[in-house]
């Protein structure tokens, strides 16, 4: 019979808190950056000229079809070869933001594509320029439709952030892993780790649901 040892967790608790803070920080900054990247990409792909359409399509395909871990290592190990030295946390944020941004742009694009061309023509017909049309007419309608899949992208981001432990960031996954192997207490640490990630992502699910309910209550989008 396996004896669950809570003490090892209590001993590791201060380290765990530090790890949680780092994971939270990385996820928070990356979420914002990823959303902004997603916005720029979806605008360029749906409203931009031929060149930016091609460029950003290639960009999204490249990012989506290569492992995040390789992208992390490119930023962490390959950039220094070109004289660009960044803190590992910054490397993690950059890679995660770009990776998630590409996915977010796809989610947003499916929303934008579901808004009819007539809305676009009506807006342009009134004299709004492209950016205004996107910002005031297309995007507000599109975002309402894609809140649930958008929420999943942010949840994926938090979970994917555990990969930064590969590039020497002492995030919560790193602390858990280290605790587990140092103390030979796999069950305690990994279950605790799972619970911690569930807490962080649960927070996002709550936000996403409340947005959904907010727009549902408005309910003015056909």
């Amino acid at each position: 019979m396996y004896n669950i040892d809570i003490d090892v967790l209590l001993v590791a608790w201060p380290e765990l808190i530090k790890g949680i803070k780092i994971t939270f920080f990385i996820s928070f900054i990356s979420s914002i950056a990823a959303f902004l990247i997603g916005l720029v990409v979806v605008y360029s792909r749906t409203m931009g000229g031929d060149f930016s359409k091609t460029f950003f399509t290639a960009f999204v395909e490249f990012i989506r079809n290569t492992p995040l871990l390789i992208q992390l290592y490119i930023v962490y190990k390959a950039l220094p070869e070109f004289g660009i030295h960044l803190h590992p946390i910054a490397c993690g944020i950059i890679a995660l933001s770009i990776y998630t941004g590409a996915y977010i742009s796809e989610v947003l694009r499916s929303g934008v594509n579901s808004i009819t061309g007539e809305q676009y023509q009506a807006a342009r017909g009134l004299g709004l320029n492209r950016l205004q049309t996107f910002r005031l007419i297309i995007f507000p309608q599109a975002i309402r439709i894609v809140i649930p899949p958008l929420g999943s992208q942010f949840i994926n981001l938090v979970k994917n952030s555990s990969l930064v432990s590969f590039i020497a960031v002492t995030d919560v996954f790193y602390v858990i892993y280290k605790g587990a192997v140092d103390d030979f207490r796999f069950f305690e640490f990994f279950i605790t780790g799972a619970l911690i990630y569930m807490l962080l992502t649960g927070f996002i699910a709550l936000i996403s649901n409340s947005f959904e309910r907010h727009y549902h209550a408005l309910g003015r989008c056909s």
């Binding site: 023509q121 017909g125 009134l126 003015r220």
Partner: peptide
């Protein structure tokens, strides 16, 4: 020019939001 030339469509195309 577009702001000086109003256009009204068959499907109204009001902004639903």
């Amino acid at each position: 020019i577009r702001s000086e030339v109003g256009i009204v469509f068959q499907q109204f195309n009001l902004f639903p939001h």
